[in-house]
């Protein structure tokens, strides 16, 4: 069990507050800068513009720097940093359906990544850009957000079961 700066009793209270503050800041700045990960790749491939792409690359570099820094300061909170060396190179950080062989995770990453990239570029932005567009008054983006909300419940009730069944049927279950 990882331990952060705040003890459990305080952390459970501060989770909504801290994440809300973080979200407000990110939403404000994302509206200012037109931040978009998919748009970064799209602008680079179509026009060789690097402005948006620099945002996504900065995120990768800064997250490594941030995790490294806080790993030095609060090692208890970064239990498995650097993941590939502590948990194996082809094991994903938890969050996806668990208990599959590594090959299944590689397959899942490639297929879902490709489809998310394809769909998002046709819609005109990544999830955060569409969320910000919804807050700017774009009705289509607002319906995308409503779809994400409906999708959360659909995933929890139906689709997650299908995925595990399908992966097991392919023989990838651990």
């Amino acid at each position: 069990m990882a331990t952060g700066i705040l003890p459990v009793d305080a952390a459970v209270f501060f989770v909504p507050l801290v994440t809300l503050t973080l979200g407000l800041l990110i939403g404000y700045l994302a509206q200012r800068s037109g931040y978009c990960s998919i748009g970064g790749f799209r602008d680079y491939f179509l026009f060789r513009h690097t402005r948006l792409l620099s945002g996504y690359l900065a995120l990768i570099v800064a997250s490594f720097a941030g995790y490294f820094l806080f790993w030095l300061v609060v090692p208890g909170a970064m239990e498995h940093f650097f993941w590939a060396t502590t948990s194996g190179p082809f094991v994903p950080v938890p969050g996806a359906p668990g208990g599959l062989v590594p090959a299944a995770y590689l397959l899942i990453s490639i297929v879902t990544g490709f489809l998310v990239g394809l769909i998002a570029v046709l819609l005109g932005g990544c999830p955060i850009r569409l969320t910000v567009m919804a807050s700017e008054g774009n009705y289509r983006a607002a319906w995308f957000f409503v779809g994400m909300c409906a999708g959360s419940i659909i995933f929890a009730t139906i689709v997650s079961g299908w995925v595990v069944w399908f992966i097991n049927a392919l023989g990838f279950g651990a």
């Binding site: 990453s109 879902t112 779809g147 995925v163």
Partner: peptide, 16 residues
């Protein structure tokens, strides 16, 4: 956009 939202969220959740 509504169905794309459902689809993107489910794909993202499968990956995590």
């Amino acid at each position: 956009y509504f169905f794309a939202g459902i689809l993107v969220l489910n794909l993202a959740m499968i990956f995590g």
